[in-house]
Every structure is written in C-alpha cells, then in structure tokens.
Amino acid sequence: MTQNNAASTNVRTRFLICSDTHRIDSLPGLIPSKQHADVAIHCRDLTTQSQLHEYKASIRLLQAINAPLKLVIAGNHDFTMDIPEFHKKVAEASLERELVEQAYGCDGDARRLFEGTGITFLDEGVHSFHLQNGALLTVYASPYTPSLGDWGFQYHPDKGHDFIIDDGSGTNVDVVMTHGPPKGILDYTHSGERAGSADLFRALARARPRMHCFGHIHEGWGARLITWRDRPTAVPSHLTDIDNGQSCTIAKLSDIKHGARQSLSGDAARMKCFATSHCSGDEHPLNWGSQTLFVNAAIEGTPQSMVNQKENLSMQLPWAVDLELRSSRGAGETSEK
C-alpha cells in the first residue's frame, strides 16, 4: 500500500467520536453545541430496545453536535434495522402487530427517521466524502459483531465475517467505523476475556487505516496508537502483527476515574471530552501506513470499573481526535460513493 504523508497536501481535521449512547438524548456539559468538529462519528447502539422513541432521542443528540458531517452505523441493540432479526424477534414473542408497530414501527421505519435530519446513515462498505475543510475522507463502515446473544447485525464467531476494507481497487481507507472492536485491542470484558473480532483484526492489519473507531465493549473505553510490524503475517493477529515497543496507550478507563483530561488547542480545549492530536509537529504524529489510532468511544458507563470493581461509572467521555487527511483538491465532485 502506498500512502502520501506529505504535510503540504494534508488537511488538519477534527473528529468527534462517540458510541453506545443507548437512547441518551443529550450529553449535558460534555459536548457544548458551540464547539466545532469537522466530522461527528457515532459507532452506534443508539438505542437499548430499538424502539422508535429511542431513535428520536438519539437523533436529537446528534443534531445538537456542531459538525457539518455526521456519520452513524447500526449496532446490535438497533435490531429493528436488521430486518430478518426483527422478524425473528417478533415471531418468537408472539406480539400483536398493532403493539409492535406502536413501539418499533414497520420495516424500515427506524431508518427513515434519519431522512432529512442532516445525519448520514452508512451501510456496510466504503464511502467517500469531500469535507467542508477541503479534506477528502474515505470511510469503511460495518455494523457486524461476533454473536454475544440474540441481537442484530451479529454473526457466529465460528462462521466469521468478511470485513472488506481493502477490496484491491487501490482505494485507501482513512477511517474504519465499526460497532465492535478487533480482537486484541481495547476489547477486554470484566471477566478478563477478549470480545473483539479476529476477522476484523485481520482486515485492519492488511488495510492499515489512519484510525479505527468503535464501542460495544463499554469497559474497553480508551485509545491506543498501534505501530504495525513491517509486513502482515499470513494470518494476522494481535500477538504477531503489532510492534508493542513502538506503540503507546493514549488513555484507558482508569483515566476517567481520576478525572484526567487531554486537550487540543483553541476551542477543543474547552470541550469536556478526551482529546488527542496526531498531526505533524505533535508528540505522536501518526505515520499513515505503519500506524493506526484505535479509539473505543463507548459513552454509557459500565456497572463496574476495571480499576475499582466497587465503583459505578454512569457515563464515559466522548473523544475529540485531530488527524491529517488528504486534500480533496482535484479529487472530483462526488460527495459519497
């Protein structure tokens, strides 16, 4: 993969990232509406029970964010958007059609709520956007996670899933946006087990995007700048393909416990979120092609902190991330593909 890291052709771009808000309709004091980001990303679980009123609350949350581009995907709790799974749940519950439609709507109703809201709902695949700041952003999105129960957009771990981040077309993906983590990165559960996807990790190790953002595993909140080994192995894994000596942890859940904050310059310094910057001249500038920033941005807190199992956390912090993207100059007029 050939990447162009020339600083003169890059555009500094701010991302505001969150996930797993589970029907919260506002984040009071966390994301002041006057603070600006170039791109807002929600890695889903907008809802808890996938009911229409929950989607409406989440839309209000996203509309309050000051960003010209807002991207969302589905999550396992948003099961009404997984039509076969929705039908299965309704059949198993033997609910009356009228009751189902009142709470959940008909097929496609949840998706249609996003029309005309200024929020872009992404299906699985690669999408490209020309940003207002002059940057070109290419995103791979996928809602699929390994099965942890009877929910939407899940696959059996033994059967796997094809995350086609690099389709061989030469399109370089900047940001991967999934609901769940890859295996081995910010995916520890309270039981001490890893819940990430091995299939997703293998795809990421081969594509090597600038950033991968996700949620799903709430106790895995944090960010880590990964340095890849020179070449991916035949079957990439977190044990063989990460150069841990050249990687660094940006933040982990214990940082919330101690009230720690990182800040960017200007208005991001006043945003009550965890902020990190990996542009030219920063302490840890991201070297695209050999490094990837991983961000677990789960907002809803966990019943037990990984640091102190007696401490309850009701809400975790969103992320503000500054990265450099390619300039869109000369890249055509298409806003999405």
Rank of each mutant, 00 (worst) to 15 (best):
L113C: 08
L113M: 14
L113G: 04
L113V: 08
F114Q: 07
F114S: 10
F114V: 08
F114A: 13
E115S: 14
E115T: 14
E115D: 15
E115L: 13
E115H: 15
E115C: 09
E115G: 11
G116Q: 10
G116L: 06
G116D: 08
G116T: 11
T117Y: 11
T117K: 11
T117S: 15
T117A: 09
T117G: 09
T117C: 10
G118R: 12
G118L: 05
G118C: 12
G118V: 09
G118Y: 11
G118P: 09
I119C: 06
I119W: 09
I119H: 10
I119E: 06
I119N: 08
T120S: 13
T120H: 13
T120W: 09
T120G: 05
T120M: 09
T120L: 07
F121N: 07
F121K: 08
F121Y: 15
F121W: 15
F121M: 15
L122T: 10
D123T: 11
D123S: 13
D123H: 07
D123Y: 00
D123L: 00
E124Q: 14
E124A: 13
E124F: 04
E124N: 11
G125F: 04
G125P: 11
G125Y: 10
G125T: 05
G125R: 06
V126F: 03
V126I: 15
V126T: 15
V126S: 12
V126A: 14
H127Q: 07
H127W: 11
H127N: 12
H127F: 09
H127A: 04
S128I: 01
F129I: 00
F129W: 06
F129L: 03
F129G: 03
F129V: 01
H130R: 15
H130L: 15
H130Y: 00
H130I: 12
H130K: 12
H130S: 13
H130Q: 14
L131R: 05
L131H: 02
L131C: 02
L131N: 02
L131G: 06
Q132M: 06
Q132L: 09
Q132T: 02
N133Q: 05
N133F: 06
G134P: 05
G134L: 07
G134S: 12
G134Q: 12
G134Y: 06
G134K: 07
G134I: 05
G134M: 08
A135C: 11
A135F: 04
A135Y: 07
A135E: 06
L136Q: 12
L137C: 03
L137D: 00
L137K: 02
L137H: 02
L137E: 02
L137I: 06
L137A: 01
T138D: 00
T138G: 07
T138Q: 07
V139Q: 03
V139K: 01
V139I: 13
V139A: 04
Y140W: 01
Y140A: 01
Y140Q: 02
Y140L: 05
A141K: 04
A141Y: 05
A141P: 00
A141S: 13
S142D: 01
S142I: 00
S142W: 04
S142R: 00
